[in-house]
Design a protein around this nucleic acid. Structure first.
Length: 254
DNA sequence: GCGACAG
DNA sequence: ATCTTGTCGC
């Protein structure tokens, strides 16, 4: 991975969008701008932020839900993005896709999305089943400029999206009660930007925030429904496993 | 000025 | 995110 002061982005201006049957339409992939600097990245976020739909309420009974995650290898030069689509009722994986590539941007807190977005969208484009909801590994509105990965993915794809983070990026909160389902508001700069949600009794909570076309109440319900047995949503778990497997294959075979 | 800082 | 040993517990 390259890092050159004013030019964190190692890739050209736009993500490559080879001509294949696009489940998302060519719009999603072509609308992904990979900034050439931190300043430009911030500008892109501020331009896209108004496009976020926080009214929702979003699907209360989605048929399918997708999990997205990325695994890194070789000191950060290689990455594998994975998307798994689960039947919302049985939580069985009904479709999946991966995309191996390089990080599109250096890691900068608050600009994290630019790093994984191109690969995640390529993987999404390779699905044969378009999910009703995206559950992202990272935050949505719980972001310095209210435009985290989940918002970015939602706006670019037009799909409802939720952000589920394992650790905080911004905000303050009180510890939620110890029982599964308990939550407390995540506040930042006078706004409620998400919820600190306990998905399992006595287990460290997760940070839930709206990404796009969703309400916070619904987002909370969807995450709880996906985390019946473990701390993290089943979508995140299956996508995490798939991305690691894809990375392992890419590191030996290829 | 000194930390904190999604993955 | 990834680098890593042992350890506690179902």
């Amino acid at each position: 991975m390259k890092s050159s002061g004013s030019r964190p982005g190692a890739a050209p201006g736009r993500a490559a969008a080879p001509g294949r049957a696009a489940a998302l339409g060519e719009t999603a992939l072509s609308r992904v701008v990979v900034p050439g600097s931190v300043a430009e990245a911030v500008t892109v976020q501020e331009e896209l932020r108004p496009l976020v739909d926080l009214v929702g309420p979003g699907p209360s009974a989605p048929a399918t839900v997708a999990g997205l995650d990325v695994a890194y290898g070789q000191g950060g030069d290689l990455l594998a993005a994975a998307v798994t689509v689960l039947d919302a009722g049985t939580l069985e994986v009904v479709d999946s896709a991966v995309s191996v590539g390089e990080p599109a941007f250096d890691y900068v807190p608050g600009l994290f999305a630019f790093r994984e977005l191109p690969a995640l969208l390529t993987a999404l484009d390779r699905l044969s089943v378009l999910p009703d909801l995206l559950v992202c590994d990272g935050h949505g509105l719980a972001h310095p400029r209210r435009f985290g990965l989940a918002c970015h993915l939602g706006v670019v794809t037009g799909l409802p999206a939720i952000g589920v983070g394992k650790t905080p990026l911004v905000g303050t909160w009180d510890p939620p009660a110890a029982e599964r389902g308990a939550w407390s508001p995540l506040r930042d700069g006078g706004d409620v930007v998400g919820r600190v949600l306990r998905t399992q009794d006595g287990v460290k909570p997760v940070f839930v925030s709206v990404g796009h076309r969703m309400g916070l109440e619904n987002a909370t319900a969807r995450v709880l429904a996906l985390a019946q047995r473990y701390r993290l949503p089943e979508t995140t778990r299956t996508a995490d496993r798939l991305s690691r497997d894809a990375l392992a294959s890419a590191e030996q075979t290829d």
